[in-house]
């Protein structure tokens, strides 16, 4: 076991290398620059290729090219750059090409700010680009998860032939903590018979997303949908912390969930039984797992660093028979454990 004291962004980049990353393309944007900086230094050492593209539009399309040749590919950016990539992400999804896309999200809309934010939840989880598709989305809340979920994202991307997104945030990306660098034994990138290699007299291969004849696009769309249904069965990740006896369950992801852990301890020291439900895969969302909590708890407290995006999903899943309160903080300052505890008391009249 290799125990390190690592920054979140470095953990993610190490995981990419350990997963066999062959091609990275990216463009400078704050606050994700640590990832390309790390990879420009380390990727060539293991025979991979690092390209600083002229824009995010170019980065994502470079991935489209490299992925079509069967290699593991990744790009990273931050919110405005991810917006520019949406065209390419839609094409990757339509062409069924695996790729890992990392969004160390910042605060928008527009140029916004470089502060902490979760304003990209809708964009990340509801497609983002045009067309009828979903891509898997993972939200790490620790440096270890920056590593583990990146490994996971590469595997899921290959397994379902889909782009996969890591929705990270500034806090998790910049903070340092202990990391165990563990690439699980036995995970191997699958053979990609669909990818371009040497042709060797084989049948012509075509990778595309344009389907004009008859109902072939409808068939294609249902095929993509079926993959999504499979992901719902197999790829859901979530975390529960002290939910069993909780009077109020906080629902949060990423950095907010991390802060909420401390809030829960603080609340319990003060006699208030809080718990935490944390979706780790935002797509597919752990709907059943969240809903099952309504058997023992009727109070849910959704906290996000936006004005209420995941809130829509939680309201849809939990329905109207439970008490849902929301606290949103669309600003660059991550709320402290005290802030969340005080909000819980205020919103639930304790």
């Amino acid at each position: 076991m290799n125990k390190l004291f690592s920054r979140g962004s470095d953990a993610l980049a190490m995981a990419a290398i350990d997963s066999g990353l062959k091609f990275y393309a990216g463009y400078p944007i704050t606050p994700q620059n640590d990832i390309p900086e790390f990879l420009s230094r380390e990727l060539p050492k293991v025979g991979g290729t690092f390209v600083q593209a002229e824009s995010e539009v170019a980065s994502i399309n470079m991935l489209l090219g490299a992925s079509s040749c069967g290699f593991r590919v990744m790009t990273s950016s931050s919110s405005p750059g991810i917006s520019l990539m949406q065209e390419g992400i839609s094409y990757l999804a339509g062409s069924e090409l695996p790729a890992v896309i990392v969004n160390v999200s910042r605060w928008g809309p527009g140029l916004g700010g470089i502060g902490a934010s979760q304003g990209d939840y809708h964009q990340a989880t509801k497609g983002g680009g045009h067309g009828d598709y979903f891509i898997p989305v993972f939200a790490p809340y620790s440096v270890q998860e920056m590593y583990d979920l990146t490994v996971k994202a590469f595997d899921v991307a290959d397994k379902y032939r889909t782009p996969a997104l890591i929705l990270a945030d500034v806090m998790i990306s910049l903070m340092r903590e202990t990391l165990i660098r563990r690439y699980p034994e036995g995970i191997k990138p699958p053979e990609k018979s669909w990818a371009f290699g040497e042709r060797k007299g084989e049948r012509q291969k075509i990778i595309k997303s344009l389907y004009l004849k008859g109902n072939e696009l409808e068939v294609h769309n249902w095929k993509l949908h079926k993959k999504f249904e499979e992901m719902k069965k197999n790829e859901i990740l979530f975390d529960k912390y002290l939910c069993d006896d909780a009077d109020i369950i906080i629902v949060a992801f990423g950095m907010v969930a991390r802060v909420a852990r401390s809030t829960i301890e603080l609340a319990r020291e003060n006699g208030l039984k809080l718990g935490l439900f944390r979706p780790i895969s935002l797509v597919p969302y752990p709907e059943e797992e969240l809903f099952s909590l309504t058997k023992t708890c009727k109070n849910f407290f959704v906290i996000e660093m936006n004005t209420g995006q995941m809130l829509y999903d939680v309201m849809r899943i939990l329905g109207r028979n439970v008490n849902i309160r929301f606290y949103g903080k669309p600003s660059s300052y991550v709320p402290t454990p005290d802030d969340l505890f005080n909000k819980a008391k205020e919103l639930f009249n304790i």
Binding site: P36, S40, Q52, E54
Partner: peptide, 15 residues
């Protein structure tokens, strides 16, 4: 980071 105008041989955080 490296810019389009970065000179040959110039060390930047992405070169």
């Amino acid at each position: 980071q490296m810019a389009p105008t970065t000179l040959l041989g110039q060390v930047t955080t992405t070169s």
